[in-house]
Every structure is written in C-alpha cells, then in structure tokens.
Design a protein around this nucleic acid. Structure first.
Lengths: 134, 134
DNA sequence: CTTAAATATCATATTAACATGAAAATAACG
DNA sequence: CGTTATTTTCATGTTAATATGATATTTAAG
C-alpha cells in the first residue's frame, strides 16, 4: 500500500508529534529510536520540511519539529510527498478505456473503494496514529 | 495498488478469457495485442500456468488457455501469484504493536478498509473485467 | 574566532522490479 | 526423421527504490 519511504516518513512524523514541540529533535535520535537508516531518514525529513510538513533548523541545537499540530497534519500530506496518489486509481488496470463513461462490471465497485481509500488518507491525521507507532 | 507485473497478468488473463477456449493463444499474439514485452509476458504466463490459473501447451499448435471459466477465476487468484496480499494489511505501517488488541485511533477504520480491499479482489472475477480491457 | 553540533548535499553502492536476447526442450505434422 | 512452431529456461541488461559514506554548510555558544 505504501512505499517503505512513505512508511518511514509517517513513523517519523508521528514520533516527532509525540515529543515536546518547544525544542527540535535530531535525525540521529529519530533514526535510532525507529531503526531507520540515518542518512536516508535525513533526506526524507528534509523533503518533508520542503513540503512544509516539518520545520528544520540547522546548526547546533537544530533538528526537526512538526509545522502544525498533529490534528492538522493528514496522512495524505505526509504520504503524497513520496508516493503518487494521483488519478491512477481511475481503473484498476490503469487503462484509459475503462473510464466512467464506459465502465466494466468491476469499475463502479472499484471506484467506490478507491475513493474510500483516498478519504481515509485525507481525513485521518497524525493525531489518530499517536500512541502506538513508536 | 498493483505491480505492473500483476496488471500485465490480469490483462492477459482477461484477453484469454475473451477468446474462444477450444484453441490456445500464443504469447506473441497476446503480447502484440496488449503491448506487453513478449519474453516478459512469456514468463508471467508460465507462472500463471504453474499456479493453475492457465493451461499451457508446448510445441506446434501450443499456447495458453484459461484453466476455468472467467466466472471461476477471481482477481485474487491472478494477482496473488505476483503481489503479496498477505497480512501486512494488519497495520498501515506494518508494525506488530499496532494490533487488534492495542489499536491506535486509526486502526479500526484501516482494518475495515483493508478488509474491503481484500473482499474486492477475492469476489471480483475475470468475467467482471471482460469487455473493457483489450 | 574557533569549535562543536547539527542539517544539506553529493557521489556511490545495493537490491529488486522490469525487461531483453538467445538457446534448449517439446510437440505436431509432413 | 526432419522441420517448424511453440513454450521453457537461462543469462544478461536496465531502471528505480533503497541505502551508505563523505563532505559542505549553517548555527549556537564559549
């Protein structure tokens, strides 16, 4: 369902959300706590900062913080930085012909389901994952 | 959602289902019709035959046929040959702790959704995709 | 100004998915 | 038996995701 990069990102964001927000957390701390390769996580967190999901501070005393409250950060906001969640859900097989105006028997059911998946990621927030991901 | 290998497999099985079953169809024919790399499709069809989704016949006049009626072949039967549809849907993040007995706030909703996805692949058949995949 | 602690960046390695090409095995049929 | 059409198998190539390692840049603080 999610790439391992997106899972790393989600787990790191939840981990950040579970800590006091008045001081930033360092990549090494998060990487050690979650068992994620340090430099790889570094790049991931940097991308999340560029996407305004996190705030980064360089230099001594620096690190990462979440850029909003856990309730305000949807899973989609985190995941879409890494995984394409675009319209390729139109058809299960990714084909143009199997569109809404010429649906196969499975099309309607699949469309409903894929919309539910989208809704889940759009409406579930980081706060909903807190407490059980560390 | 599906690997491109699994999509190739599904499209090929649907294509086979749409043709007369009394004579086998050759890899080249299917590959040309669907724009799938020939030798790659060859390997895919071979694996489907080993999984008893297709029947294969070597030599002159050989090729592939579906091993049951389109109504009897679930999408799961085709897809599970290539993509792992196992219990990693338990938790969105693939973690053990986030299990049923100690759920996070998102767990119940995610579980429902992932069960719906499983049901879709288990109960939708090749017959439901016919007519719009060629 | 210097040092230490941190992120940012770049180059490279590893792995798995996807793909290609060629040779071997099989089967039908004259 | 020999030819031809086919799957099967094996060896290799390509690409993207994942990961590692080294260096540059930034900042706080003494």
């Amino acid at each position: 369902m999610l790439s391992s990069t997106a899972k790393y990102a989600l787990r790191a964001v939840v981990y950040l959300a579970e800590h006091r927000q008045d001081e930033p957390l360092q990549v090494s701390v998060i990487a050690d706590a979650l068992g994620i390769p340090r430099n790889y996580l570094s790049k991931i967190l940097h991308e999340l900062a560029r996407a305004n999901v996190l705030l980064s501070a360089r230099g001594k005393g620096g690190g990462f913080r979440i850029a909003a409250t856990p309730e305000q950060i949807s899973l989609l906001a985190v995941v879409e930085v890494f995984d394409q969640f675009n319209g390729n859900r139109r058809c299960l097989l990714g084909r143009e012909e199997c569109s809404d105006h010429s649906p196969c028997a499975a099309h309607g059911h699949w469309k409903t389901l894929s919309e539910e998946i989208s809704t889940f990621f759009r409406e579930t927030t980081v706060a909903d994952l807190m407490g059980h991901v560390g």
